[in-house]
């Protein structure tokens, strides 16, 4: 089985099968570039991902492993027919996978899935963030994202007023 070493920003190496790695658009391109520039076709590619740390990279690879037999979705797939959601977004495994994560980790996963071009993972993580926002109050959002208001004096009231004409119309 052909393998590839994927190395995180903080130096952890993950040895995965090329077949699995190629389900990430970015890793696929990197493996192909390595093949073209290497004289030895047996050489094992090594790919350094400088923007993703080990904890996040492990999660991405874990998700890929679970979904290795799903059909690969093109990055610009039009999902208006709604089928994409049913197939990719709603499995019990995905729900259990995301459930223990705090939103800081989910945001890092969004950045990682976007960078590595893993469409299915990007969809479910974005959907999770959306669900913590849409229809919520500002205070609920702050609690969910563990944020404190850092507006001073009347700045918060000002922002509310700036928004007013938009909200009312």
């Amino acid at each position: 089985m052909a393998l590839v070493r994927v190395i995180s920003s903080d130096g952890a190496a993950f040895l995965v099968s090329q077949r699995l790695a190629k389900r990430s658009g970015k890793l696929k391109t990197e493996i192909e570039t390595f093949r073209k520039s290497s004289d030895n076709s047996e050489a094992q590619p090594e790919i350094r991902i400088v923007t993703i740390r080990a904890e996040i990279l492990r999660l991405v690879l874990q998700w890929l492993q679970q979904h290795q037999n799903d059909p690969v979705l093109p990055a610009n797939q039009n999902e208006q027919d709604g089928r994409g959601d049913a197939e990719m977004g709603q499995s019990q495994w995905d729900r259990d996978f995301l459930a223990p994560m705090d939103l800081g980790i989910v945001m890092e996963l969004i950045l990682a899935a976007n960078h590595l071009e893993v469409k299915g993972l990007l969809d479910i993580t974005c959907k999770l963030v959306e669900s913590k926002i849409t229809g919520r109050t500002v205070d609920e959002i702050r609690t969910a994202f563990k944020l404190k208001s850092d507006f001073k004096g009347n700045e918060e009231e000002q922002t509310r007023l700036e928004n007013r004409w938009c909200v009312e119309n």
Partner: peptide, 14 residues
């Protein structure tokens, strides 16, 4: 993208 969400984001923090 829903403008309603954008308006919410403006009020969360700086």
């Amino acid at each position: 993208y829903p403008i309603k969400n954008m308006l919410l984001f403006r009020q969360v923090c700086k």
